[in-house]
Simulated scan of single mutants.
Amino acid sequence: MENLIEKLITLKTCDDVVFEIEPPLVKNMKALHPLVDEDGVKLSVIPLPNVSSNHMTMIMEYHRLSDDGKVKEFSVEKLDNEELKDFLLAVHYLNMEALFEFLTQAVADRIENRSVRYVREYFGIENDFTPEEEAAVREKNAWSFIGKDIEPEE
């Protein structure tokens, strides 16, 4: 009889919290594939320097809901913009495609129909246009600004 219990994989987040993770979840983390093979893990503890314990907890919740077919119940609305961007970067670091797509859609939803100023602030992009250059771009492409000048809520 085959051993039905798979060995848990130990991950250590950047804030020194250790998680015992089941192999199916680690298989979704493509960045870890070189560290895990059929025989097990090549390291006793896999360090995750760009992933916090909060991120790992949310990743585990997303994985649980996706296994249950309830991924639509996963929400990042409670996260502020910085927390969402940090989570997105952690998921990108782990190369988790489905969750990355989910989070990029959440970012897109947050910036949809927002002003250029808001989007610049959201992503930390400095405006390198002079007022005259910006006015010329707005005039030339006025159609693209229709409905997009909603300022962020304070």
Score class of each variant (00 low, 15 high):
M56R: 02
N141G: 07
I111N: 09
P24R: 01
V26F: 02
N3I: 09
S53F: 03
L4E: 07
Y118V: 09
A135P: 00
E20V: 04
G40N: 02
D86E: 13
E151S: 09
E151F: 08
L4S: 11
M29K: 00
E22N: 11
G147E: 04
D80S: 04
L79Y: 01
E153H: 08
S44W: 05
E22H: 13
S66V: 10
D37C: 08
P24Y: 04
T104P: 04
M60D: 01
E151R: 06
D80E: 09
K27Q: 06
S75I: 10
A108E: 12
K12M: 06
A142G: 13
N28H: 13
V36C: 03
A106I: 12
N28A: 07
M96S: 07
D68I: 14
E133A: 12
D15T: 08
L84Q: 03
R120Y: 05
V45H: 09
V26S: 06
M56G: 03
L4Q: 11
S75V: 09
I150M: 12
P49C: 02
M56C: 01
K7A: 10
A142S: 14
A106M: 04
K12Y: 04
Y122M: 06
D37F: 11
N81F: 08
E139K: 07
T104F: 05
V76E: 00
D39R: 13
V91W: 03
A136G: 10
K30M: 00
L32P: 06
I5E: 13
F102R: 03
V18C: 10
Q105P: 14
P152E: 07
A106W: 01
E83P: 05
V116Y: 02
K7H: 14
Y62D: 02
V17F: 05
L11R: 01
F129D: 01
L11W: 04
M1P: 15
D16Y: 05
V71T: 11
E132H: 12
